[in-house]
Amino acid sequence: MSSPVRILVLGAGAVGLPLAAKLSRVADVVAVTREQYASGISRSGFSIHGAWGDESFSFPCVSTLEGNEPFDYVLVTSKSQDTDSICRQYKDLVGAADVVSFQNGIGNEETIAQYTDHVIGGVVLTGFVREGDCAVQVTANAGPLQIGRFPEGLDAGVMGLADILTKAGIPVEPTGHIKGKLWSKNLINCSLNPLSAITGVAYGDLRGPDSWHIIEQIVREIYVVVQREGIRLEWRDPDTFLGYLQGALIPVMARHRSSMLQDILHGHKTEIDYLNGAVVREGERLGIATPYNACISDLIRFRESAWGMIRS
């Protein structure tokens, strides 16, 4: 009888803990998270509510991992700004496993690739909101997880992970073109997250003419950049994507507030530099102006710095 697949979840929070919980039903899972979460989950277990059903789980959850027993898969679910430090801290384990990024933004896979040649890109189209230290609400599910060998391709490692996720009850779609999927997810994030964070409203409230004009300009700038890069998005042109956003995605996630807003409300640094900020950097490298993406990035950075002024 074969031994169970071993999975390590690093930077487990609102995304990583639900993944760890569901996977613990079919694999040997360890989650590394903040001390307060690890202590609470070790005492009381962990629960999921909402679009993934209502379930309770018990699985190993620690703040620091002891030992170097290898894992088959390492899932990195931290904020993008923490990717390098996490990979450096666990470099021996990262170097010996298939490493999967389930993170927002552009650049995480490239960072992980500095520590291993076995990188799998992952796209999460699900909304998660923490409910205290030991529970997460799944607020919306706009599609299956997407996974693929980075920057492109399918292989046994990807398909093995897809099989495990499926057995755990997590919808998944393997793809041979994960880089395009990552940029497609980034397009969604750049369109909605920062504007929701600045205004404090849910996605459904962003469909008015003034906010929609800003979204349109952000989207059109991104298309110019990615088309120059030769990256294939899921929607052939800006108007097709905007129609999808207006008619399909926002209705499903109308009540969802962005994780960026949650970060700002808690005084945490956001991932803006890996979302719209990444678009600005690529635009500068290619000689393409991206004024709307630059402006909204600056506004989010101001909200971050203004937190101390608001608190005082």
Rank of each mutant, 00 (worst) to 15 (best):
Ser3Arg: 15
Pro4Lys: 11
Leu8Phe: 09
Gly11Phe: 07
Val15Leu: 14
Leu17Tyr: 03
Leu17Asn: 01
Pro18Gln: 07
Ala20Arg: 14
Val26Trp: 13
Val32Asn: 07
Thr33Gln: 04
Arg34Pro: 00
Ala38Leu: 09
Ser39Tyr: 04
Ser39Lys: 10
Ile41Lys: 07
Ser44Gly: 13
Ser47His: 10
Ser47Glu: 08
His49Cys: 02
Gly50Phe: 03
Gly53Ser: 01
Ser58Asn: 03
Cys61Lys: 03
Glu69Arg: 09
Val74Ser: 00
Val76Gln: 00
Ile86His: 10
Ile86Cys: 06
Cys87Leu: 07
Gln89Ile: 05
Lys91Cys: 06
Asp92Met: 03
Val99Ser: 10
Ser101Gln: 07
Gly105Arg: 09
Asn108Gln: 12
Glu109Ala: 11
Thr111Gln: 15
Ile112Trp: 03
Tyr115Ser: 13
Val119Tyr: 11
Gly121Phe: 09
Gly121Asp: 10
Thr126Pro: 01
Val129Leu: 14
Val129Cys: 09
Gly132Val: 05
Val136Gly: 05
Gln137Pro: 01
Thr139Arg: 03
Gln146Thr: 09
Gly148Phe: 14
Arg149Ile: 12
Pro151Arg: 07
Glu152Ile: 13
Met159Lys: 11
Met159Gly: 00
Gly160Tyr: 13
Leu165Lys: 06
Ile170His: 02
Pro174Arg: 06
His177Ile: 09
Ile178His: 00
Ile178Cys: 00
Lys181Leu: 00
Ser184Cys: 04
Ser184Phe: 06
Ser184Tyr: 02
Lys185Arg: 04
Cys190Arg: 04
Ser191Asn: 07
Ile198Trp: 08
Thr199Gly: 02
Val201Ala: 06
Gly208Glu: 06
Pro209Arg: 06
His213Tyr: 13
Val219His: 14
Arg220Phe: 14
Val226Gln: 11
Glu229Cys: 12
Asp239Trp: 14
Tyr244Met: 05
Gln246Tyr: 15
Leu249Ser: 03
His256Ser: 01
Ser258Arg: 08
Asp263Val: 05
Gly267Glu: 14
Lys269Gly: 03
Thr270Arg: 10
Tyr274Phe: 15
Asn276His: 02
Gly283Tyr: 05
Leu286Trp: 02
Ile288Asp: 01
Ile288Lys: 01
Asn293Gly: 03
Leu299Cys: 05
Ile300Tyr: 10
Phe302Thr: 06
Phe302His: 05
Arg303Tyr: 13
Ala306Phe: 15
Met309Glu: 13
Ile310Arg: 15
Ser312Trp: 14
